[in-house]
Amino acid sequence: MSMLDTTAHILKLMVTLKGGIRISDVIAHLGMPKSTASRVMNQLVSYGYIEKDDAKGVFLPGPLMVAVSQLINRQAPLSDLVDNALRSLCEQTGYTGYISMLDSQEILVLRVIHGRQTLPIVTWPGSRSPAWGTSTGRALLARLSDTELQAFFHSPTVAAQLNGGSHQIDKLVAAVNRTRKEGFASAINESVADTASVSCAIGDPTTHEAVAFCLSFPQTLAQPQELQRIAALLKETALLIAEKTGDTLVSHQP
Rank of each mutant, 00 (worst) to 15 (best):
G20Y: 01
S199N: 06
L221M: 12
L234S: 02
S251T: 12
I241N: 02
G31V: 05
S129F: 14
D103L: 15
V122H: 06
S197R: 04
G133A: 13
L86F: 02
E91L: 12
V122A: 03
G31S: 04
T220E: 07
P61W: 02
R128Y: 04
D146K: 05
T245C: 08
V158P: 05
T7S: 11
D53T: 02
I107V: 15
P63R: 07
I188Y: 13
A201W: 06
S199T: 09
R116G: 15
C90R: 00
T118Q: 10
T96V: 07
V66W: 02
A37P: 05
E243R: 15
L215Y: 00
Q168T: 14
I202T: 04
H252R: 14
V66R: 03
A187Q: 12
Q253T: 14
H114P: 01
C200F: 02
T136I: 09
S35P: 04
I113D: 10
C90H: 00
Y95D: 06
A85Q: 09
Q228T: 09
A55Q: 09
D54K: 05
A187H: 11
T134F: 03
I23Y: 00
E148Y: 08
A174N: 05
T220H: 08
K244D: 04
H29R: 12
T206K: 01
L234R: 00
V68T: 11
I23A: 04
I107P: 05
R116Y: 14
T16Y: 06
A85L: 03
N84S: 15
N163V: 07
S38E: 11
P224G: 09
G165M: 13
D53N: 11
L227N: 00
T147G: 07
A55D: 13
Q228G: 02
D54R: 07
P33H: 09
E106L: 10
I121W: 11
F59Q: 01
L81Q: 08
L44C: 08
M41Y: 02
H208V: 15
Q117M: 12
Q43I: 12
V15W: 07
D80R: 13
L119C: 09
V58R: 08
W124S: 10
T136G: 14
A174I: 03
P130I: 15
I21H: 06
A210G: 12
T123W: 00
A210D: 08
